[in-house]
Structure formats: structure tokens, C-alpha cells
């Protein structure tokens, strides 16, 4: 099973690097980072913090866009290019195909994010004259968790939606949760019962990407998270990965193919 999943994952990684998506994103990432490093904010104290925030946000945005695009097109392109029939005629289960697509999309995106993050770290080192290492590692690892959830969401939704709709929904959810996710819970408190329970259920069912966003903590050099909390976040991400892949498989297991 591991060999079949890794074969599918390898295919996705090869596609990502041979179709040059990554290089385009990297090019724009470097250009924007270089441009941001030249901006002068006069009369603002701790200007490097703004620059760090911009740099980190760029790394997050490019990785998220790249990851959702790559993951969202996997199953539809197999159908469209009529390669799925041959693949499923081999001794591989449909969940294995989905999991392989997820693993490959995640691995390719994680590799891209690593490059972006290393560039960002070099940039941060230059601007701030040093880095809080534990926070940097936590910021990196937690965003990898977010990318895993994002990839699973895109692969799962690709069994239901077209690629364009999937990317739109995934990225909208990703950015909306990052911006408003933290305020949703307090908003539900103002709603009378039993509506509050419904909203609370919706709140719990949504993937809280903001839980993995360490930007503020990193930039302001706040205390690092405890190992226990990081482990809980890893479990939270794993749960959502399995839920999204299972939901996708539920539709995909009966989907017809064009052999």
C-alpha cells in the first residue's frame, strides 16, 4: 500500500516541478520580497517587523495558492486526460489514489514553502539581525500543518467541484479563516439559543487555519508554544486531513471513469 501511495505521490511531485508552477511562484516571491526589502517606512519604529510580516505573508500566500492549485487539479485532470481508467485498472484502491494525490500535493507544496521560508529567513536575518529560532521552527512547522489541511481540502473537494470552483472555495476558506476565524466564536455568543448551537457546530466543523498562523507571535518575539499544544495542533490537522479525504473518497469511490 505504501509503495502504491508513494508512486502516485511521486507522480504529483514530478508534475509540479516539470510543469514549472513552482518556478513561476518562486520568481514572483523573490521579486516581491526583494521589492519589499527596499521599501522605506520613515518615522516608523521597528520597521523591520512590518517587513518581516510582509515577507512571511508572501511565503504563506504563494505556498497556499500553489498548493490548492496543484491539489485541486489532480483528480479532474486524470479524468480529463483519460489517464484514470488505466490507473484504476491496476491493483490500486481509490482511497490510495486520493491519499497519494494528497501526499504528493502536500510534499510538493511543502518543498516550495521550505524554499520560500529559507529565503524569508535570510531576508529576516538581514533586516532584524537575528531570528528567534524556536519560534521560527514553530512558525514553519505549523504552516506545514495548515498546508496539509489545505491540500486535503482541495483533493477532497475535487471529487465534487470543478478545478476553478475548488480553488476559489479552498482559498476563500483559507483566507477568510485566517482573517476572521479568531472572531467567529465571540460572534456566536451574541446569537440566541438554539441558533447559537447551530453556529457553534458550524464553527467546529470549519478548519481553523488561523490556529496554525504564528506570524504575530513570531514577529513580536512572543513566547513559543508548548510542545503539548503543537502536538494537539498536529492531531487537529491530521483529523481534518482524514475527514476531507474520506469525504472526497465517498464521492470518488463510485465515480465513473473515461477509460
Amino acid at each position: 500500500m505504501i509503495r502504491r501511495i508513494s508512486a502516485v505521490a511521486r507522480l504529483v511531485i514530478l508534475e509540479a516541478f516539470r510543469k514549472k508552477d513552482f518556478y513561476v511562484a518562486l520568481f514572483f516571491g523573490v521579486v516581491l520580497l526583494a521589492y519589499a526589502s527596499r521599501i522605506e517606512f520613515y518615522q516608523i519604529s521597528n520597521v523591520h517587523r512590518y517587513l518581516l510580516e510582509i515577507g512571511l505573508a508572501l511565503a504563506f500566500i504563494f505556498s497556499a495558492v500553489l498548493g490548492s492549485g496543484l491539489a485541486a487539479r489532480q483528480l479532474p485532470s486524470e479524468l480529463q486526460n483519460r489517464t484514470l481508467g488505466v490507473l484504476l485498472s491496476k491493483p490500486i484502491g481509490r482511497f490510495e489514489v486520493m491519499f497519494g494525490k494528497f501526499a504528493g500535493s502536500f510534499a510538493a507544496t511543502a518543498a516550495c514553502f521550505t524554499v520560500f521560508f529559507v529565503l524569508f529567513a535570510a531576508f529576516a536575518w538581514m533586516k532584524a539581525g537575528g531570528l528567534p529560532m524556536v519560534l521560527a521552527v514553530q512558525t514553519f512547522v505549523l504552516f506545514l500543518f495548515a498546508l496539509a489541511v489545505l491540500a486535503a481540502l482541495s483533493v477532497g473537494l475535487s471529487a465534487y467541484l470543478t478545478t476553478a470552483a475548488n480553488v476559489l472555495v479552498t482559498l476563500l476558506l483559507f483566507f477568510m479563516m485566517n482573517i476572521y476565524g479568531g472572531t467567529l466564536l465571540s460572534s456566536t455568543a451574541q446569537v440566541p439559543l438554539p441558533g447559537r448551537y447551530v453556529l457553534w457546530a458550524v464553527y467546529s466543523a470549519l478548519p481553523h487555519f488561523e490556529f496554525f498562523d504564528m506570524r504575530t507571535r513570531f514577529i513580536h518575539d512572543w513566547p513559543a508554544l508548548s510542545a503539548g499544544l503543537v502536538a494537539c495542533l498536529a492531531a487537529y490537522a491530521a483529523l481534518f486531513v482524514m475527514v476531507f479525504l474520506t469525504l472526497g473518497w465517498f464521492k470518488f469511490r463510485k465515480a465513473g471513469t473515461t477509460a
Binding site: R3, S6, A7, V8, L11, L14, T83, V86
Partner: peptide
């Protein structure tokens, strides 16, 4: 129809891996 970005060697290795 096959994965157009792969070479014949890679295609056969891919399906061989899938078939164990």
C-alpha cells in the same frame, strides 16, 4: 493517454510500482 510529462521508463516504473 498517459502522463505526458513522463518518459517511457518513468511510466513503466510507475505502473510497475502500482502493481507491486
Amino acid at each position: 493517454m498517459y502522463y505526458r510529462f513522463l518518459t517511457p521508463m518513468e511510466i513503466l516504473r510507475f505502473y510497475g510500482d502500482i502493481c507491486g
